[in-house]
Design a protein around this nucleic acid. Structure first.
Length: 234
DNA sequence: AACCAGGACGTGA
DNA sequence: TCACGTCATGGT
C-alpha cells in the first residue's frame, strides 16, 4: 500500500540532526567547524543573481567531492574576485582559475565547467529563470547539479537526489542498484508536498544521515533509523 | 596506507 | 539506453 507521505521521515531526521541551513553561502558568518555558514531560517531572494551564480559554481565544485574541499575552492574564487561576476570569471586566466579550483579535484574538467556556467549566466535574459533542460544542456551540469542549482540557487522546488540518498533508499528497500535518478526523484516527489523549504531540508538531512552511516561499507551498518525507514516503501 | 568524498562526460556495445 | 573508464585533491 502506498504511504502518501514521507513527512514522518523528515521529522525523524530533523530531530536527529537539526536544521541544516543549506545552501552554504559566503554572505553568512562562517564558523570554523561549520564550513560555509549556517542559515536555517533564511531564504535568499530568488532573483539574486549573485546568489544564483555562487550556488551554481558551488554545485559544480562539489561534484563527487566533500563540501569541505568545494568550499575552499569557493573561497579561492571569492578571493580572486570572480565568485559573483560571470564576466570576471571568464576574464580570469586559465592558470589562476585552475589554482582556485584545485582543492575541488578534477581541475581541468571543473575549470571548464565553471566557464561554461559563466557563459550560460551571461546569456540569461534579465530576471530570467532557466529551465531544467536549459541547465542540462550545459556541459558539466547533470541531473543532480541542475536540481541543486534550481532548488538552492533559484528557490524553485526541484527535489535533489544524491549518492547518499540512493544508498539509504537501497538499505530501506525503496531502490535497487539499477534505480535511476528520475525514478528516485519521483519516489520523493510522490510522497512529499511540493514545498521549497521541505525539499531543501529533506535533501540536506539525507546527506547528513548518509555521511553519518553510509559513507563506508557495509553501507547502513548500525543505522539506528533503518528499521523505521523501511516502513515507507511502495 | 588504502579508502572515499553532496557527479558528469565520453566512449563503445 | 547502459556499463565502464576517466577525471587527478585531500582528509581520515
Amino acid at each position: 500500500m502506498l504511504r502518501r507521505t514521507l513527512k514522518p521521515v523528515a521529522r525523524m531526521l530533523l530531530r536527529q540532526y537539526g536544521p541544516q541551513g543549506w545552501w552554504p553561502l559566503t554572505s553568512f558568518i562562517v564558523l570554523p567547524d561549520n564550513p560555509g555558514g549556517y542559515h536555517p531560517e533564511f531564504v535568499p531572494d530568488p532573483m539574486d543573481r549573485s546568489v544564483q551564480f555562487e550556488v551554481a559554481l558551488g554545485a559544480v565544485l562539489t561534484q563527487n567531492i566533500t563540501w569541505r574541499q568545494a568550499w575552499q575552492a569557493v573561497l579561492n574564487l571569492q578571493e580572486a574576485g570572480v565568485l559573483h561576476e560571470p564576466a570576471r570569471l571568464l576574464a580570469l586566466p586559465d592558470a589562476a582559475l585552475a589554482d582556485a579550483v584545485r582543492p575541488a579535484r578534477f581541475v581541468n574538467s571543473k575549470s571548464r565547467y565553471l566557464r561554461n556556467m559563466a557563459e550560460f549566466f551571461l546569456g540569461l535574459p534579465p530576471q530570467g529563470i532557466p529551465s531544467r533542460d536549459d541547465l542540462l544542456a550545459v556541459t558539466g551540469i547533470g541531473p543532480e547539479t541542475a536540481d541543486s542549482i534550481l532548488l538552492y540557487g533559484f528557490q524553485s522546488p526541484e527535489f535533489v537526489v544524491d549518492a547518499y540518498t540512493k544508498r539509504i533508499g537501497m538499505a530501506a528497500g525503496w531502490f535497487d542498484e539499477r534505480t535511476g535518478y528520475a525514478e528516485m526523484k519521483a519516489f520523493f516527489t510522490a510522497r512529499l508536498p511540493v514545498d521549497l523549504r521541505l525539499y531543501n531540508e529533506v535533501h540536506a538531512l539525507l546527506v547528513a544521515h548518509g555521511a553519518a552511516w553510509y559513507s563506508r561499507q557495509p553501507w547502513g551498518a548500525g543505522d539506528p533509523l533503518l528499521r523505521r525507514l523501511r516502513r515507507y516503501g511502495k
